[in-house]
């Protein structure tokens, strides 16, 4: 197998794994946001209050769904990093910003201003630039 073929395969493997990375990190954050909203503000830092907050946090179904999504994100992220550059995967996964903005607007009903939408467009442009660079700058083990 030529090194060009290997590089091309790695590029496609990287693109494929970016799908679960982006999806599970977005879903995880939105689900956690929904769960934490139900729990309320953290304004009291006394130990007993923090203990009660931890109990409320870890008995919330949305928080557990969020944690499950983030664990799936972590495994996908670990796998892709066995061959891909961190400086490729990290900005490429910024696509999740667009998803989080859209999902928090739809699922949580948060108001998203036009400036934020413009920022999301710029982030997507940046991701498009990064996606056109080789995902791995080393031979790998």
């Amino acid at each position: 197998m030529t090194s060009a073929t290997t590089a091309r395969q790695r590029q496609w493997k990287t693109y494929a794994l970016l799908v679960p990375i982006v999806f599970f990190s977005s879903a995880g954050n939105v689900l956690l946001g929904k769960g934490m909203r139900q729990i309320g503000d953290v304004r009291d830092w006394r130990l007993a209050e923090l203990g009660a907050l931890l109990v409320k946090t870890f008995t919330n179904g949305w928080v557990w769904l969020g944690i499950g999504s983030l664990l799936l994100f972590l495994v996908s992220f670990m796998v892709v990093l066995t061959w891909a550059d961190y400086s490729f995967v990290m900005p490429a996964s910024a696509t999740s910003y667009a998803l989080v903005t859209v999902m928090s607007h739809w699922a949580l009903g948060e108001v998203v201003r036009p400036q934020r939408w413009a920022g999301v467009v710029l982030i997507c442009l940046g991701v498009a630039f990064v996606a056109r660079t080789p995902s791995s700058s080393r031979g790998g083990k």
Partner: peptide
């Protein structure tokens, strides 16, 4: 681009 986008957001 990503950074400027993030700053805007």
């Amino acid at each position: 681009f990503v950074s400027v986008g993030v700053a805007l957001v």
